[in-house]
């Protein structure tokens, strides 16, 4: 990975090293013909990524990263 940034790399990757890898348990929810990948915590499912072939869905605020997913 080549980063082109003004932020020092130790700051960008601060807290993450080989002895302390960040492990994220992603879960998937199916909604219609597409999936959302996210993280469950405290009864909420926060969207991390939309996996869909319809580009219009990426403009739909319901599937934006960071948003709580509500099953339709």
């Amino acid at each position: 990975m080549v980063l082109h940034t003004i932020i020092p790399l130790e700051q960008v990757f601060g807290g993450r090293d080989s002895t302390n890898p960040e492990s994220i348990n992603y879960e998937y929810r199916r909604t219609g013909n597409h999936f959302v990948q996210g993280v469950s915590q405290e009864g909420r499912f926060t969207i991390e990524r939309l996996i869909a072939t319809d580009p219009a869905l990426y403009l739909d605020p319901r599937y934006a990263p960071g948003r709580d997913f509500k099953a339709p």
Binding site: R49, L50, P55, A56, L57, Y58, L59, P65
Partner: peptide
Amino acid sequence: HVIPQLLAVEQD
């Protein structure tokens, strides 16, 4: 997320 958004903007 941004790449398909741009595709959608161009197509809409």
